[in-house]
Design a protein around this nucleic acid. Structure first.
Length: 190
DNA sequence: AATTAGATCAACCGCGGGGCA
DNA sequence: ATGCCCCGCGGTTGATCTAAT
């Protein structure tokens, strides 16, 4: 038998949150704090699973979230951290105050990953598996693949180092220039 | 003006880690 | 030592917006 579902899905809302649901969640977290996501929906009067509530709060409703464009400085830091940590978005987000891992991940996937051409496989797979968009997909795939291949030619000059994952307890940025543009990451291993 | 392609981002899914009984 | 359960994470999807044709 498979793993039990994280929540009872029958009768629960899915998809986009409305203002009323947001208000209920904000009100509940303000008075009770974060955590206990499993019981939160029932106690807050929300027809959502706890997972969905947690995600909504963490990625959208938290008061300390900085929304809007990622600055060139942040982008640069993301690139540098990604070259060291790989797709460890939560760790990377930890170095960018008030940014969420989801936001960084999205930014990487839509902007930065193009620089290394890794999207060829991902996008092609997506186009092939998307049942809704099967019409005219062949043309789309051909066009997209050619574009990415072109980009990849230029990207070959950029070397991306993907180290073997190592469990760490913490890490910090150590500046070696006054404007913080040069520095290194110091790891504390377990 | 209508259609198509591309970009963006909120949200969902499944998995694995870790706490606890 | 073992199994269950919750939480957090990364990968992926799909709706919507914008730009190009």
């Amino acid at each position: 038998m498979g793993r039990a579902p994280c929540c009872e899905k029958v009768g629960l809302h899915r998809g986009s949150w409305d203002a009323k649901e947001d208000a209920l969640l904000i009100q509940y977290v303000r008075s009770h704090g974060e955590g206990n996501w499993k019981d939160l929906p029932k106690q807050a009067g929300l027809l959502r699973c706890g997972k969905s509530c947690r995600l909504r709060w963490m990625n959208y409703l938290r008061p300390d979230i900085k929304r809007g464009n990622i600055t060139p400085e942040e982008e640069d830091l993301i690139i540098r951290l990604h070259s060291l940590l790989g797709n460890r978005w939560s760790l990377i987000a930890g170095r960018l105050p008030n940014r969420t891992d989801n936001e960084i991940k999205n930014h990487w996937n839509s902007h930065l990953s193009k620089k290394i051409g890794s999207k060829v496989k991902t996008m092609s797979t997506r186009l092939f598996t998307s049942s809704k968009k099967n019409n005219n997909n062949n043309k789309k795939i051909q066009k997209y693949t050619k574009k990415i291949e072109n980009e990849h030619e230029h990207a070959k000059e950029t070397k991306i180092h993907s180290p073997k994952p190592v469990r760490i307890s913490s890490f910090r940025w150590e500046e070696s220039s006054p404007d913080q543009s040069i520095g290194r990451i110091v790891f504390q291993t377990l």
